[in-house]
Design a protein around this nucleic acid. Structure first.
Lengths: 244, 244
DNA sequence: GTCCACGTACTGGTCTGACCACTTGACCAC
DNA sequence: GTGGTCAAGTGGTCAGACCAGTACGTGGAC
């Protein structure tokens, strides 16, 4: 049995999550005013510093605007929130949000080839060696979860090779959304991470230093699973429509 | 003279910025331990809650790891930080960081066409109308700063049309990095935002609903300025090399 | 009557000091 | 060695106080 570290949620964490939930799940509309810190503290049965900490974190994420002397108001997260909010929006309301999942798949399909092209442009022998190592690790296991971990590590190397901070940070944010669901996604991602051959082709293309070839190879890695997942999501959506 | 709202930096803000600076500008390496909250409070001459608030915000950004009972340690921001850190990294150390600026331009060139393609796929007459309105606004001014604002608003509409939360959040993060420097960038961006014709072509392509045409049109909008800016950045870099 | 100044009652901002909960590492008994 | 114990240091939380800024009603000046 894989023992898990016990999770100890702090009081401000709890408050943060509750307020966040109200904001992203629609309990509080944009422009609406939050209760005062004192009032919130009273209602939630915690101290004011705890509430304060949570609200400051909300402000940092651009989800609320706090004005000294005035009320703290909710901002439109669709308009202002950053990519770091993605994990939270993906699991909105219990299960995965199909719309959000779709958007992540689409984004991946756009960004992956772009990063691969940059990596091909900039990478040298060292990058090729690192990629080869990563793909060997991928080939060395049969377990779907492990394969996903190795595939993620592979892309990590690609992003490093692209030598782009913007893409690196994007990748970090996307990974933060992806990793928690990694085990649950094992069955649906098996198709993709099992294609060791496609990864080898991509590796060779990047190694050759030709951006266009690398772009195409990356698309060949990502496209199949993306398409079938999008189809599955659409079917799911239609099922839901019928239920109404 | 354009009066600016006075900036009232709060104490935790100040602490946050200082610690953030230490972390991203290399004063503190990844893995290193921060001074204790009490010690930091003493050294900075502020109360412990103020320090605490700042550190919690650092933790939220995945820049430090705080462990109850143990020391707070610095994490590797290149590996864990999200896209929301981009603005801060762009202006590292006084001026713009050329490497980071380059990466943003490259990312823009990858994402813009991708978003345009999605918008073409999904948008209807309403999107076309909104885009036309945005491009008309762009055409209606000669001022380079205003043009940039309108171009940004235009892309905002495109992103809306793509109906993708992931791209929307990415756009928000990138805009947060771009907007503060908007005025400073007016001269170098003039070339791009002055090409009203290219925007009209893009608008028409999206309106027609053909993803590939839209992708190509978006690239024609973004490519020229991207290329010349990248060249300029490279030249800048070489100048700096020679100075050494 | 209209308008503006002002006071009041609220909001968030900050501090102090205390105590609890947890981790670490040294020490000690086995 | 192994495991238990304890003290010291760390973050976690709280209560209460006071400062600083904003919103709004009320009054007086015109």
């Amino acid at each position: 049995m894989p023992l898990q570290p016990v999770s100890r949620r702090s009081v401000p964490d709890e408050v943060f999550d509750q307020v966040l939930g109200e904001v992203v799940d629609g309990g509080l509309e944009a422009g609406e005013a939050l209760p005062s810190e004192r009032r919130l503290a009273e209602v939630l049965g915690v101290s004011r510093p705890a509430v304060r900490e949570a609200l400051q974190r909300m402000a940092q994420t651009r989800l609320v605007e706090v004005r000294h002397g005035g009320a703290t108001t909710v901002r439109d997260f669709r308009r202002y929130a950053g990519l770091d909010l993605l994990p939270r929006l993906l699991v909105r309301g219990g299960g995965l949000d199909a719309t959000v999942a779709r958007s992540i798949l689409e984004a991946r399909l756009v960004i992956g080839p772009g990063v691969a092209a940059l990596a091909a442009e900039r990478g040298g022998p060292a990058l090729l060696a690192a990629l080869t190592g990563a793909v060997d690790a991928l080939a060395g296991t049969e377990d779907d979860v492990e394969r996903q971990v190795h595939a993620l590590a592979y892309w990590d190397v690609v992003v490093d090779g692209a030598d782009s901070l913007a893409f690196r940070l994007m990748f970090n944010s996307l990974r933060a959304a992806y990793e928690p669901a990694l085990e649950a996604l094992a069955p649906v991602m098996a198709e993709e991470v099992g294609q060791v051959g496609a990864y080898r082709v991509l590796t060779a293309a990047i190694g050759e230093g030709d951006p266009d070839t690398a772009r195409a190879a990356a698309e060949r890695v990502l496209r199949p699973a993306t398409t079938s997942l999008l189809t599955a999501l659409r079917a799911l959506d239609e099922t839901r429509q019928e239920k109404r």
